[in-house]
Simulated assay, not measured.
Amino acid sequence: MARNFVQPGETITLPAPRALASGQGFLVGALFAVALAAAAIGAPVEGRRVGVWDLAKATGEAWTAGQRLYWDNTAFRVTSTAAGNTLIGVAAQAQASADATGRVLLSGQIPAA
Score class of each variant (00 low, 15 high):
M1H: 13
M1Q: 09
A2P: 12
A2M: 04
R3F: 15
N4D: 10
F5Y: 05
F5V: 08
V6N: 01
Q7L: 09
G9D: 11
E10R: 13
T11K: 13
I12H: 05
T13K: 05
T13N: 10
L14C: 06
P15L: 00
R18V: 02
A19C: 09
A19V: 05
A19Q: 10
A19R: 13
L20W: 03
L20Y: 06
A21Q: 12
A21R: 08
G23K: 02
Q24Y: 05
Q24S: 10
G25T: 00
G25H: 08
G25Q: 03
F26T: 08
A30L: 12
L31Y: 04
V34C: 00
A35W: 15
A35R: 01
A37N: 10
A37W: 07
A38T: 01
A39Q: 11
A39G: 07
A40H: 09
I41W: 10
I41N: 12
G42L: 06
G42T: 11
P44F: 02
P44E: 09
P44C: 07
E46N: 04
G47V: 05
G47Q: 02
R48A: 12
V50D: 01
G51M: 13
G51R: 06
L55K: 07
L55C: 02
A56S: 13
A58D: 14
G60K: 02
E61G: 07
E61L: 06
A62R: 06
W63G: 01
T64L: 11
T64E: 11
A65V: 05
A65H: 05
A65E: 12
G66Y: 06
R68S: 09
R68D: 14
R68Y: 11
L69G: 03
L69W: 02
W71Y: 15
D72H: 04
T74K: 10
T74C: 03
A75I: 05
F76D: 10
F76S: 11
F76L: 04
F76H: 15
R77W: 03
R77V: 14
V78S: 01
V78K: 01
S80N: 11
T81N: 03
A82R: 07
A82Y: 02
G84T: 03
G89N: 06
V90Q: 03
A92Y: 11
A92R: 03
A94I: 03
A94R: 09
Q95L: 14
A96T: 08
S97E: 14
A98V: 08
A98K: 05
D99E: 12
D99R: 02
T101S: 15
T101C: 00
R103W: 12
R103Q: 14
L105I: 10
Q109T: 14
Q109D: 14
Q109N: 11
I110M: 15
A112P: 10
A112R: 15
A113F: 15
